[in-house]
């Protein structure tokens, strides 16, 4: 995966071997606290106009990964590249420049908008910080942003609490696209929204991608939602990517047993299909402590073998662009 020659343009955003360890706080009586590996050697890339869907359950490290990409959290190891340039460590000025190119939409639109700021102020802020518009131009720009996310300009003088969840998520999107970013990280952007509103926001994201050839890293626990927007899908389990490939390929021919279980667990779309699906995956995710000796999935894996317990599997290619980290596939 890292064999990019100079002839091929580097991907827009690329992560190589990114790791993040947390040292849990010690209890009152000490006790050897082993670091928790939230993210353990993740490599992935996103290109212009492309959506990489990142699927995983709670605690798998997907949100930590998002925060690393947004430089809200410093990785313990690994590199972050934007357009081939190492952006893992940046000076303050260059960090600001980075923020113009990489933006994020958060899960909860109720807490991601400052409750004491008017919409007007919220939308102006990114423009002012980055000096993107001045004077009257700001107003025009703010109005343009609002109309792009499908809101009327009478929203400007109001406060976030006056809007519904879906509208707030639109506002958060407007704020994120204000700086005309190239990469957008969306961390569960629709899971806090009503069902009838989800489709609106998903379609808005799709439209924005087309209009601005944005690169999305779309993070969700809901594989059906991820599948709707994604060109490629990466499946994350306990801090590592266990499978990645073109969306349709992964959905139709899942290779990793965990991907299979995730797909099997998606509720059926019609009651009549109820009994046809393979059912009842067992076991639950636990927090990884330290470095496991073998595959992280052994505890739940139905096809586990001896080798899996001692040797961690590497991601290897199966077909064009389809990689899986499993000894048995």
């Amino acid at each position: 995966m890292t064999t990019a020659t100079t002839a091929i343009a580097p991907p827009l955003l690329a992560l190589t071997g990114v790791r993040k360890e947390y040292v849990p706080r010690r209890g009152l009586f000490g006790g050897a606290a082993e670091p928790v590996r939230a993210v353990d050697g993740v490599s992935l890339s996103v290109d212009r106009g492309e959506t990489l869907g990142l699927v995983g359950e709670s605690g798998c490290g997907k949100s930590t990964l998002a925060r690393i990409i947004l430089r809200l959290v410093a990785p313990s190891a690994g590199t972050l590249r934007l357009d081939g340039q190492d952006v893992t460590r940046l000076s303050r000025a260059r960090a600001r420049a980075y923020r113009r190119r990489v933006q994020m939409i958060f899960q909860d639109p109720y807490s991601s908008l400052n409750p004491r700021m008017r919409i007007d102020t919220l939308l102006r802020e990114p423009l002012l910080i980055h000096g993107l518009a001045r004077g009257g131009a700001i107003e025009a720009e703010v109005e343009r942003l609002l109309s792009q996310v499908g809101l009327a300009t009478d929203a400007l003088s109001r406060y976030p609490h006056e809007f519904s969840g879906g509208q707030r998520q639109r506002l958060a999107i407007a704020r994120a696209i204000a700086v005309s970013p190239e990469v957008m990280v969306a961390d569960e952007p629709v899971s806090a929204l009503d069902v009838s509103i989800r489709a609106q926001v998903l379609n808005l994201l799709a439209d924005l991608q087309q209009a601005r050839s944005l690169a999305y890293l779309f993070i969700s626990h809901d594989i059906a939602v991820v599948a709707y927007l994604s060109h490629r899908i990466a499946v994350m389990y306990q801090g590592v990517i266990v499978e990645t490939g073109p969306a349709r390929e992964v959905l139709r021919h899942p290779q990793h047993p965990y991907t299979e279980i995730l797909l099997a667990a998606v509720p059926v779309p019609h009651p009549r299909l109820r009994n046809q699906a393979v059912r009842h995956p067992t076991g639950e995710t636990s927090v990884p402590h330290g470095a496991p000796s073998g595959c992280r999935y052994v505890a739940r894996c139905p096809i586990m073998q001896r080798r899996c317990q001692v040797e961690p599997p590497e991601l290897h290619a199966l077909a064009d662009g389809h990689f899986v980290a499993c000894h048995l596939r």
């Binding site: 509208q167 489709a199 609106q200 709707y228 969306a247 797909l263 998606v266």
Partner: peptide, 22 residues
């Protein structure tokens, strides 16, 4: 969003939306 449509061949269909707010 339904998985069975998405895994199928052909271009992705746009999700139908319910306009407006609750």
């Amino acid at each position: 969003p339904r998985l069975d449509w998405l895994a199928a061949e052909g271009p992705r269909t746009r999700l139908a939306e319910i306009a407006g707010v609750v």
